[in-house]
C-alpha cells in the first residue's frame, strides 16, 4: 500500500459537523482510485489529511507504510505528487522552470539542478505532450495547457502516488477526456498510483479501478464502479434523481429533469 487511511475523522475548528468521519481507503501501486462526492462532501479534506497538511482527530494515515506526519515535506514530496485544485501565480515562470520546480524534493539545498533533473523534467513534459510549450510563460497558457504543465510538474517529482484534486473543473470536453486518458495511461504496471478527486460520476466510473463515494464526510460505498454506483446511492449522495445505464461495461448516470421525477 502506498496510501492507507484507517478510520480517519477530521473537523475544522468551529465547523458544525465533521468534514470526515471514519473514512478508510487503501491505494496500492499502479492503482487508479477515484474519490467521488458532491461539493462539500469532504473530498478535498481527504486530500489534505492524506498528505499531512492537517492532522486527523481520530484514525491514522500511512504513506508507504509510515505515519504521514513522520515524513519531512521533502521526503513526502518524493513519494506523493499533487496537482492541487487551486494555486497562485504570484511570480510566473517559464514552463521549463515551472516543471523543474517538481525536482525540488530531489535537490539538496545548495546544489544546482543537474543533468538528471533536466532529463526528468523533459520526460515529464514529453509525457503530457507539452515539449512545444517549454519556452512559454506559464501565465500565457490556455486552461488545458496549464493543467498539462501542472501535471508535468507533478510527474517530474517521479512520485509513487499522484493526487489529482478536481483537475478538470475548468476544462472543456476534449481537454477533460485527454486528462483522464493520460492519468489512466500513467497508472498501471510500473507507474504511480493515481488518486483522483472529482464529482464527475460518469468519467470516474469509466476510468477508475475503484471508487470511494463520500457523502457529508462519510464513506457510503467503496469498490468497483459497477458495484458501488447504483441508482439509489448516486441519487442519495448527489441529492438529485438519476437514471442509470451501463455503457462499455461501466454504469453511466443521467440526471433527471425535476418534472419527470416528480411524476
Amino acid at each position: 500500500m502506498i496510501l492507507e487511511l484507517r478510520e480517519v475523522s477530521f473537523r475544522y475548528p468551529g465547523a458544525p459537523r465533521a468534514a470526515l468521519e471514519g473514512v478508510s481507503l487503501g491505494l496500492g501501486p499502479g492503482e487508479f482510485v477515484a474519490v467521488l462526492g458532491p461539493n462539500g462532501s469532504g473530498k478535498t479534506t481527504l486530500v489534505r489529511v492524506a498528505l499531512g497538511a492537517v492532522r486527523p482527530m481520530a484514525g491514522s494515515v500511512l504513506v508507504a507504510g509510515r505515519p504521514v506526519h513522520t515524513w519531512t515535506p521533502r521526503a513526502l514530496a518524493r513519494i506523493v505528487a499533487v496537482v492541487p485544485q487551486r494555486e497562485e501565480q504570484a511570480f510566473p515562470l517559464r514552463v521549463r522552470d515551472a516543471v523543474l520546480l517538481g525536482r525540488y524534493p530531489h535537490l539538496s539545498p545548495w546544489a544546482r539542478a543537474g543533468q538528471g533533473d533536466y532529463r526528468a523534467a523533459a520526460r515529464a513534459l514529453a509525457a503530457v505532450d507539452a515539449e512545444d510549450l517549454a519556452d512559454r510563460w506559464i501565465d500565457t497558457l490556455s486552461g488545458g495547457e496549464y493543467q498539462r504543465v501542472r501535471l508535468a510538474r507533478a510527474l517530474a517529482q517521479e512520485p509513487r502516488l499522484l493526487v489529482l484534486d478536481e483537475p478538470t473543473v475548468s476544462l472543456d470536453l476534449r481537454h477533460e477526456m485527454e486528462l483522464f486518458e493520460r492519468a489512466r495511461r500513467l497508472a498501471g504496471v510500473g507507474g504511480p498510483g493515481v488518486l483522483l478527486i472529482t464529482h464527475h460520476v460518469n468519467l470516474a466510473a469509466r476510468f477508475a479501478d475503484r471508487v470511494l463515494v463520500l457523502h457529508r464526510g462519510h464513506s457510503v460505498g467503496q469498490g468497483r464502479p459497477a458495484d458501488v454506483l447504483t441508482r439509489e446511492r448516486v441519487a442519495r449522495v448527489f441529492e438529485w434523481p438519476v437514471a442509470i445505464a451501463p455503457f462499455e461495461g461501466a454504469p453511466q448516470i443521467v440526471p433527471l429533469r425535476t418534472r419527470e421525477s416528480s411524476g
Binding site: 497538511a53 521526503a75 525540488y104
Partner: peptide, 10 residues
Amino acid sequence: LGEEPARYLG
C-alpha cells in the same frame, strides 16, 4: 504558488 502547493512540492 501558495503555501499549500509549496508544501506539496516539498
